[in-house]
């Protein structure tokens, strides 16, 4: 019997969640689940650049916001189907990724992080002053009452985000297992040595930035329809930048499942805290978890698991 390829598991899980979404009647779960799925996309996308190659991008909000405002622009012009807005957001965000990469990838470490943080702030300021998309007043998107084949519009958005999460996870996994992932890992370990071993470091970094940014842009495109009122502060919120770093860090950055674990864990805790205590606590929760993981388990949950497995193997072999 042939071994079952491991990409089948994310697909099966996605199908299972899809089936669940047909049964569950309470719309709140769709509403909260959407946020969790959105963070799976952002964390997996962030990890392609940040986890695999070691370049810490603090500006996830920039790419997310581009996707969201890209959808607003299309909505004002001709109200295309959501899928078109998602593709558009992905393309624009990955082009911005291309430009950003050439401008900033010569910077290393904390300087690269600051440059990407600046990108988010610059874009937010630009949108703030762009009247066509509402400027500081924001934009109300009118969403259709229902979509054929779906019980409600929120359910439709949930399924779309489920699809995006699946795509992001499969893309991250494919990159990790390909020679591109090996090259990115070499860059993370030592960029000069990688270049001298024949790894085209600049080209790989630009590629990773474009894919990472593009996926984040796709995650942002349905957002105006999800919250119905979009303003620059919510589209370019610092929370996206911090969460998409914290989630892979907590889950583990060297394996594609790490960001998924981190995103589910952190986003669920945040959703629960929002309804039981207050959303004000969310960033504090992230902070506390980050500090505990960096000190106690620097390789995240995946790292803990692998250490346990190695220990057990050693015990079995002796």
């Amino acid at each position: 019997m042939r071994r079952i390829p491991s990409w089948i598991w994310p697909v099966l899980v996605a199908l299972f969640i899809l089936a669940l979404s047909r049964v569950v009647k309470n719309e709140y779960y769709m509403f909260a689940g959407y946020v969790v799925l959105q963070y799976i996309v952002l964390a997996s996308a962030w990890n392609i650049l940040g986890g695999y190659s070691g370049y810490v991008n603090f500006g996830s909000a920039a790419f997310f916001g581009i996707g969201a405002y890209g959808a607003v622009v299309l909505d004002k012009l001709w109200q295309p189907p959501l899928v078109v807005a998602i593709v558009f957001g992905g393309i624009v965000a990955s082009l911005v990724g291309l430009v950003t990469a050439y401008l900033t990838l010569r910077l290393r470490g904390v300087f690269f992080a600051i440059a990407t943080l600046a990108l988010a702030i610059v874009l937010q300021t630009l949108v703030m002053n762009w009247d066509f998309v509402g400027g500081p007043l924001g934009y109300y998107s009118v969403r259709p009452d229902s979509i054929a084949g779906f019980p409600s519009y929120v359910n439709y958005l949930f399924v779309i985000m489920l699809g995006l999460a699946l795509i992001a996870v499969l893309v991250a996994r494919a990159i990790e297992l390909s020679f591109i992932g090996r090259g990115l890992a070499a860059i993370r370990d030592n960029e000069l040595a990688a270049e001298c071993c024949g790894v085209p470091t600049l080209r790989l970094k630009v590629f990773a930035t474009m894919v990472s940014g593009g996926l984040m842009g796709m995650a942002g495109a349905p957002f105006p329809y999800y919250i119905t009122y979009l303003d620059p502060n919510s589209a370019f919120s610092l929370a996206y930048g911090i969460n998409s770093i914290a989630m892979p860090l907590i889950g583990g950055m060297t394996h594609w499942i790490g960001p998924v674990i981190g995103a589910v864990l952190l986003a669920v805790i945040q959703q629960v805290a929002t309804v039981t205590i207050s959303s004000e606590l969310n960033l504090m929760i992230v902070g506390v978890l980050l500090i505990s993981f960096i000190t106690l388990a620097p390789n995240g949950i995946v790292g803990l698991f692998e250490r346990y497995r190695q220990k057990r193997q050693r015990r079995l072999s002796t």
Binding site: F179, R182, A185, D189, A194, C196, C197, G198
Partner: peptide
């Protein structure tokens, strides 16, 4: 033209053989 470094710069997250697969895949 291939060089080695005065201070060894191994890919520390990889095994010994993993270090070699990088140039084998990307250069050779």
């Amino acid at each position: 033209i291939v060089r080695t470094f005065q201070i060894p710069l191994p890919f520390t997250s990889m095994t010994v053989i993993g270090n070699l697969t990088i140039p084998l895949r990307f250069a050779a």
